[in-house]
Design a protein around this nucleic acid. Structure first.
Lengths: 139, 139
DNA sequence: CTAATGTCTCTAGTGACTAGAGGTTCAAGA
DNA sequence: TCTTGAACCTCTAGTCACTAGAGACATTAG
């Protein structure tokens, strides 16, 4: 049995985060020692690894909850899991596209300023004031 | 003079957000009508446009506060503004790089699932459980 | 003058944690 | 066995950038 500190170390998830996950039902309530401290088994470590990995991939905790529910009913169709993954992928692609447009503009803006002038004629500030300079429109 | 609703309409920033910006000092306190309603002039519209544009570019409100402070002291060097813009650009670039790694993996994961099977042998769930399948490592 | 719409303040909620206070339990060494 | 110090407990509150809602007051068009 692992203490919460050991679980944290092995999973790479911080102690308060583990308690938070329990609080919101992402992890089931841990068993307790005689002195009321949480005790975990390897299956908890596995679930935490699952959660961590999904979080790194940008899944929301709500989405992760759905995935966990699916895991616990292995007889159900996995169509929902596939749909979640595809939706997540689409979101990531959209985010990339948006960020790339921002990058273009930020590059333009930050190249216009050599840091030598005074704020009154600063290209950065002017650019931020005037959306019209933007080549691409960002929403 | 504009009411808060008119300012909202013209700027595209929601009414509660405008009040929030005033509360945290991003906008200075508005003048008031005889009946205590906020009244704005065109200069407020300009500042709000500035804030909105900077937000769209991913600047934090804290960063925007610095930029505004700079605007109000046009005699100061604009080096700080340039540095903020470059830091912001770097952040955007980092985010893009990270998201691109995620996209690769999410594509792999979601292609592995045709939605026909049951959860027990679902590739999506397996992939999320096992980080080892990842080709690239994401942090 | 009335009715509808707009605005006011205030509180509380969102997501995913993080920080801190003040108290208890555990494990290792003497 | 006792002691010490680290780890653990619960609870509250804070983060960021808003958003939602209640209940009361102001403005404006007809």
């Amino acid at each position: 049995m692992l203490s919460i500190g050991m679980l944290s170390q092995r999973s790479g998830v911080k102690v308060p985060t583990i308690r938070y996950y329990e609080e919101i039902g992402i992890l089931k309530e841990a068993e307790r020692s005689a002195g009321n401290q949480r005790r975990y088994r390897d299956s908890d470590l596995e679930r935490l690894a699952f959660v961590k990995h999904a979080r790194q991939l940008g899944f929301s905790l709500a989405g992760i909850s759905s995935l966990i529910a699916l895991q616990e009913h292995p007889d159900r169709s996995c169509a929902a899991a596939g749909a979640l993954a595809r939706a997540q992928r689409q979101e990531v692609q959209d985010k990339i596209a948006r960020l790339q447009r921002l990058e273009v503009e930020l590059t333009r803006i930050s190249q216009g300023c050599d840091g030598q002038g005074v704020a009154a004629e600063c290209y950065v500030l002017a650019s931020l004031s005037d959306h019209a300079n933007c080549e691409a429109d960002h929403e």
